[in-house]
């Protein structure tokens, strides 16, 4: 698809009218980025770098001050297409508590479909399917506030995939979860990408999560500063640290060894690769 997700020289500012004169805070400074259908892209950047603002441009919550944003083929400025865009570009937020609307899990998953005016029978089918995809079908009649953080977040994801979107934007979906919840959510996200072919844009502060993506985009001061496969991104250890980010521990270890003059690749991002490389190193010596 042409213009699946695309930002062209986008500028966006938040204006605080409470002050006199109004305070203008430019968050996106002419950002360019294109995401293709089926990709799994991780977006990194410290707090205030503009990554969440960018994500909200893709589903027409934020409209650019300058430049154009295209989502699933439509320009987000086209008001008639807003519901089409929102339906096809789903969004999951950080706090699972603040995005569940209904008092029963299945009612919540049905919420978007009800808004879209889908036939009741079709809603039922899609709700059941979505709940099965995220592994929460047995909990369909539970109250959301009795679930764990990871379970709530999976319900929120089910509420989005029930719309059958082409793409899902996730804004730090694991930030408030414990390690178990994080694993559950990540597993769900990867499954959606691999098995259902949903395009994933994952905003995160966890480098290990970003290492799972096909592509990592680093945003700093409203600009894209690195855009590459995770191996190439994380091998730039110094640059990553200079913008307030981190790299996976294994990458840092290999980078330190390389710096000390040993023959190790700095493009190692997974535990398996690291163990293998270190083992070789010992063997050789």
């Amino acid at each position: 698809m042409q213009n699946f997700l695309k930002a062209e020289r986008v500028r966006f500012s938040y204006v605080n009218n409470m002050e006199n004169p109004p305070v203008v805070n430019e968050v996106l400074k002419g950002i360019d980025i294109e995401i293709k259908k089926g990709e799994f892209v991780a977006v990194l950047g410290h707090n205030g770098s503009g990554k969440s603002t960018l994500a909200k441009c893709f589903n027409a919550i934020n409209l650019p001050d300058e430049g154009d944003v295209y989502a699933v083929g439509f320009n987000t400025k086209d008001e008639d297409k807003i519901l089409d865009i929102r339906q096809n570009v789903g969004m999951v937020f950080q706090n699972p508590d603040n995005q569940l609307v209904a008092t029963i899990v299945e009612e919540d998953v049905a919420f978007a479909l009800e808004n879209m005016g889908v036939e009741p029978k079709e809603i039922r089918r899609r709700v059941d399917e979505a709940l099965k995809t995220v592994g929460m079908y047995e909990y369909r009649e539970h109250a959301p506030h009795k679930l764990s953080g990871g379970q709530k977040q999976r319900v929120a994801i089910a509420g989005i995939i029930a719309m059958e979107p082409e793409c899902i934007l996730l804004d730090e979906p694991t930030a408030m979860l414990d390690p178990k919840g994080r694993r559950e959510v990540l597993k769900t996200i990867r499954k959606l990408n691999r098995e259902n072919g949903v395009t994933i844009v994952l905003i995160t502060h966890y480098m290990e999560e970003a290492a799972l993506a096909d592509r990592v985009v680093v945003v700093d001061k409203g600009q894209v500063i690195i855009d590459d496969v995770p191996e190439k991104v994380f091998s730039q250890v110094e640059k990553m640290k200079s913008v307030g980010l981190d790299v996976p521990q294994v990458t840092e270890l290999c980078w330190e060894l390389k710096k000390a003059g040993f023959d190790v690749s700095t493009e190692i991002i997974s535990e398996d690769e690291c163990v293998e490389a270190l083992y070789k190193l010992f063997d050789k010596g």
Binding site: P179, K180, E208, P248, Q249, V250, L253, E271, C274, V275, L278, Y279, F282
Partner: peptide, 20 residues
């Protein structure tokens, strides 16, 4: 127990298990 042991700890444990 379900705790997330640091990546680096896992790497060293695995190396040890491999006989290093």
């Amino acid at each position: 127990m379900g705790l997330a042991v640091p990546q680096i700890t896992r790497v060293f444990n695995r190396l040890k298990a491999m006989g290093v």
